[in-house]
Amino acid sequence: MRAIALPALEDNYIWLLVAPGGDALVVDPGEAGPVIQAVAEGLQPVAILLTHHHNDHVGGAQALRDRFGLPCHAPADERIVAADHRVGDGERIRIDSLDLELDVLAVPGHTRSHVAFHGGGHLFCGDTLFSLGCGRLFEGTPAQMLASLDRLAALPGDTLVYSGHEYTEANGRFAAVAEPDNPARDRHMDRVRSLRAQGRASLPSTVTIERNCNPFLRVDHPTVATTLSGRLGHAPRSRMEAFAALRQWKDVFHP
């Protein structure tokens, strides 16, 4: 199978996971137009996955359902009106035409009902995990988001990470300040800048790349802790304090 990143709205990606015959799983269609164009070019959507309720991830789902008669799998959240199959933590979804099974992982933090879908070496994580970053805490707590990130970081290292936005370059600028001495991150950013200069997506990443380079997965690493000590005036007393301080810093960071 191959993954296609369809640019949408300002900086979103609609992800398509496509089987050799052209059947395609559609993930977080913030608008319908890019998917409809992909269909005109030969792909056939077979199902929709939604990770959370924000309109830039669900805005095109109902139009696609109406046009193509697609099943739509989404968290149990009344704010997602396009869903016909509500999913929760520990459930498994099978997409027969792709011969693919995906486990549903509850990953609250960005929103209270956010889920991720993992299977076949793929992770569709919406706005929970970005390359070199993580989502803002709109509804959840730092404890929830840290637990969610820990859960995703524990997946196999070669898992491909499909985030919902093209944020990698901006996140990389923050990461370089949060953890100045990280050669693996610098090598990753060299590749990212090359891809973006060619007009290509910086994603997918992998879980290994994020473990090695993403400061939000490295809150207890000595180099991150040293930087946070300078901001807090003392060494972080816990991983939770370190994560909360890092997330609050990112919220106001201007490179």
Results as ranks from 00 to 15, higher is better:
A8P: 15
E10I: 10
D11N: 14
W15V: 00
W15M: 04
L16H: 05
A19T: 00
V27L: 06
P29K: 02
P29G: 03
Q37I: 02
A40N: 11
P45D: 03
V46H: 07
V46K: 09
L50P: 14
T51D: 04
V58C: 13
A61I: 04
Q62L: 14
P75R: 11
I80G: 12
A82H: 13
R86V: 04
V107Y: 03
F117V: 08
G121K: 01
H122W: 13
F124V: 08
C125N: 12
L129W: 03
F130D: 00
F130H: 06
C134L: 00
G135M: 00
E139Q: 15
A143F: 04
M145N: 00
M145V: 00
L146G: 01
L149I: 01
A154I: 05
L155E: 13
P156C: 08
D158Q: 14
L160N: 11
G164I: 01
F174W: 05
A184K: 09
R185M: 15
R191G: 12
R193S: 07
S194K: 10
A197W: 08
G199L: 01
A201W: 04
P204S: 06
T208I: 11
E210W: 12
N212A: 11
N214C: 07
L217V: 06
D220A: 15
T223Q: 12
T227F: 15
T227D: 14
R231W: 10
G233K: 05
Q248K: 10
W249E: 14
V252I: 15
P255H: 11
